[in-house]
Design a binder for these strands. Structure first.
Length: 317
DNA sequence: AAAAAATCCAACCGCCTCCTC
DNA sequence: GGAGGAGGCGGTTGGATTTTT
């Protein structure tokens, strides 16, 4: 059962590559392209298996890769994407130009993982370790885990931003009066709280009237629909009473039917404490049916950048 | 200065998916 | 439909290097 590894063939070299081998491989690919990896070694005069050649090329010799120092921004991206995607290194690498999946995987295992552990965060679930002890029933664990992943990535990002910039403290009931001069000087949103991001992206404006992009966001190139992630077309906020437009429908993308109001989704108030605090004030009598719907959607927010807002919704098969 | 421990990272292994026949 | 090949992916290893004792 199974195939034996191609390197098991007699006479094929293994282990570190010599400069001469590198040169042969580089010369061959530059002249002919790699073509069939299996056929390449003999054509290039290498006593290696095709797999070994491919790995050497993609992880080391390729001219378009960047090696060495990983910036803070790259670190932040890795943590956030890992919280969302798990150990899908190639997908994560595709969002970090010129970095290889192997390099990111190594960096995660040797640096970031340890750092999260030191911070008391489980690097697998991105959940604070003490949460694991209070976690409830197994059926809720997946959803709680998703929320925790988001939350720890958010906290990590916030921690960095706090490090880099003076934090902007906001009264949760007066999000909309942020001075635009403060906001304009931030190269990034002062934090990832949705209201604050809204205020930042629209400095000086009354965001009670802001409507986030119509159409699809984030960009399809970033979004992997199989991850149960979908953009919400239009979201509006009004004076603390929340309302939303164009959501009273199911979405259909790539034949996957989505029900944004699926009641099986379990939210956790710890994910968005200030927002939930606001909602608590609104409950129960002042919340309209539409607001309730919005509330449900807001609970599913997973990831926010300057211009995008990602929301997790369940897929219907 | 030497030994031990820790860290790093290139490379390998085996499984999986996709494609062709 | 399914067998087999090729490439891709993630987990893991082990030798080299660095740090600590």
């Amino acid at each position: 059962m199974g195939r034996s590894p191609c390197c098991d063939k007699m006479g094929l070299k293994k282990g570190p590559w010599s400069p001469e081998e590198d040169e042969k491989l580089l010369d061959y690919i530059q002249q002919h392209g790699h073509g069939s990896w299996r056929a390449l070694p003999s054509k290039a005069g290498l006593e290696r298996c095709g797999k070994s050649c491919r790995l050497r090329w993609t992880n080391y010799l390729r001219p378009d890769i960047k090696r060495g120092h990983i910036s803070l921004q790259e670190e932040q991206t890795i943590i956030q994407l890992h919280a969302l995607l798990g150990n899908r290194w190639s997908t994560i690498a595709s969002h970090l130009p010129q970095r290889t999946d192997n390099e990111i995987k190594n960096y995660w295992n040797t640096h970031l993982k340890k750092r999260l552990i030191k911070m008391g965060i489980d690097p697998t679930t991105h959940r604070p370790n003490n949460l694991a002890l209070t976690c409830g029933e197994p059926k809720d664990s997946a959803n709680l885990s998703h929320l925790a992943q988001w939350e720890s990535a958010r906290l990590e990002a916030e921690a960095r931003l706090v490090h880099d910039t003076k934090p902007v403290m906001l009264n949760p009931h007066h999000y909309y009066q942020l001075p635009s001069t403060t906001l304009l000087h931030h190269p990034h949103p002062p934090c990832l709280d949705i209201f604050k991001v809204l205020a930042w992206t629209n400095p000086g404006e009354d965001i009670s009237t802001v409507v986030l992009n119509g159409g699809l966001f984030p960009p399809a190139s970033i979004l992997n629909f199989s991850d149960n992630m979908l953009p919400i077309p239009t979201l509006g906020l009004c004076n603390g009473n929340l309302s939303i437009t164009d959501i009273n429908s199911e979405y259909s993308i790539n034949d996957a039917r989505i029900d944004p109001f699926d009641p099986t989704y379990v939210a956790d108030s710890s994910s968005f404490p200030s927002f939930m605090e606001d909602l608590t004030d609104l409950q129960p009598s002042s919340i309209s049916a539409a607001d309730n719907v919005c509330w449900e959607l807001m609970r599913r927010i997973r990831f926010i950048t300057r211009e995008t807002l990602w929301i997790q919704v369940p897929m219907l098969s």
